[in-house]
Amino acid sequence: MMPATLLGMLAAAGMPADGLTVNGLLVGAMLFALGLVGILTRRNLIVMFLCAELMLQGVSVSLVAWSRHHGDWGGQMLVIFVLTVAACEAAIALVLVLGAFARTGRLDSQAWQSLREDNLPRAVDHALPPIDAAAASWPKLTPAGVLPETDEDELLEREHV
């Protein structure tokens, strides 16, 4: 017999909680874990923030489930404030991401590693296989004027100018 409810068997005894509550909590936990994976692994700053929002969604779902469990408005109230804070966070974070992009031309979280220990080499990605997508053909312009002076350090940080 497949156990209908795993937790029903894990739980030692006592009144089982409301089914919806438990299921909601499970969904919240999954969303939170997925968001965590994303924020730990994905290098794109925008995706990182999307993942942070995903974690917040997980938390919101959990809070509403708890609110239901306890028969109290507190959880839902908290979710409203989570929404507020998320909006603020998104506004400021996107501004910062824009600023970062303006400096390096990349949305790479690994572009900033100057806080590393002295004498430690810069973390560099392994060479990636070429993308099969058709090579973009950019228009070629006739060189004019003089080449601007280039800063070696800045070239490391910048992908394109």
Partner: peptide
């Protein structure tokens, strides 16, 4: 353990989590 101080924010986050 100095090598762990990579300056990469996501490694720090991973270590914390």
């Amino acid at each position: 353990v100095r090598g762990l101080q990579s300056g990469l924010v996501q490694r720090y986050a991973l270590a914390g989590a």
